[in-house]
């Protein structure tokens, strides 16, 4: 049995366990029953086939027919699909779609909306009060982490650009790119002019 088959089995069981925690999303996947969504992971030479059904998702490592839709992208771009990025990747060119784009879009959206209600599932184990407290803590933690990572990102960018003078600012980069473009055009113009001049020379010699 190939390794990819084992990876598929592991992925399938993880996804379905996750889906069990979010029945709404599971039901939305069931609406896609009868469709086959292929996902080609560029760079790994791996294509996975997702088959939604009422009981959950099946993940296959081989499929003999043509899938209804084939989503192609680098691993990170595809991972963003499932992390709430929705189909943004499609617009910035990280992801391409062959076949039925509507199915691909719905699949991407559902994957992006996957958001289990952890607090409710926790409540079954710990009771409502404790679950709510833990939920608050987790939400606080997540908000803090998100704010911290955002401000860290900003601070780091500012340091590298302004304080350390290690990286150029966006305007400098754009200006530089513009100059490069102009230079390329100038060179092309010069080339064309030289070509014309060398063409004219024999004629000039031949003239009396």
């Amino acid at each position: 049995m190939p390794t990819s088959a084992l990876a598929c089995a592991a992925l399938e069981s993880a996804l379905n366990r996750y889906l069990d925690l979010d029945p709404d999303t599971k039901a939305r996947f069931a609406d896609l029953h009868g469709k086959v969504i292929g996902m080609q992971i560029l760079g790994l030479g791996l294509t996975l086939y997702f088959v939604p059904a009422p009981q959950g998702l099946q993940v296959l490592s081989q499929f003999e027919g043509a899938p209804d839709t084939l989503i192609r992208g680098a691993p990170l771009a595809l991972a963003r699909l499932g992390r709430g990025g929705g189909m943004d990747g499609l617009f910035n060119g990280d992801i391409s779609i062959d076949g039925d784009t509507e199915t691909a879009q719905r699949f991407g959206e559902i994957l992006g909306d996957l958001d289990p209600d952890w607090e409710e599932h926790l409540a079954r184990l710990t009771g409502d009060v404790a679950a709510h407290e833990i939920g608050n803590l987790a939400r606080g933690g997540r908000a803090w982490a998100s704010a911290t990572s955002q401000s860290l990102e900003q601070d780091l960018a500012e340091y590298l650009k302004e304080e350390g003078q290690l990286l150029p600012s966006r305007y400098e980069v754009e200006g530089f790119m513009h100059e490069v473009d102009r230079m390329r055009d100038d060179v092309e113009r010069l080339e064309a002019r030289l070509a014309r001049l060398t063409q004219d020379r024999p004629r000039a010699k031949a003239a009396p």
């Binding site: 598929c8 099946q58 296959l60």
Partner: peptide, 16 residues
């Protein structure tokens, strides 16, 4: 046995 069955399902070549 789940893996054995998975493998058989892929070999079945079924389509919608």
């Amino acid at each position: 046995h789940r893996l054995w069955k998975r493998f058989a399902v892929e070999l079945a070549g079924l389509r919608p």
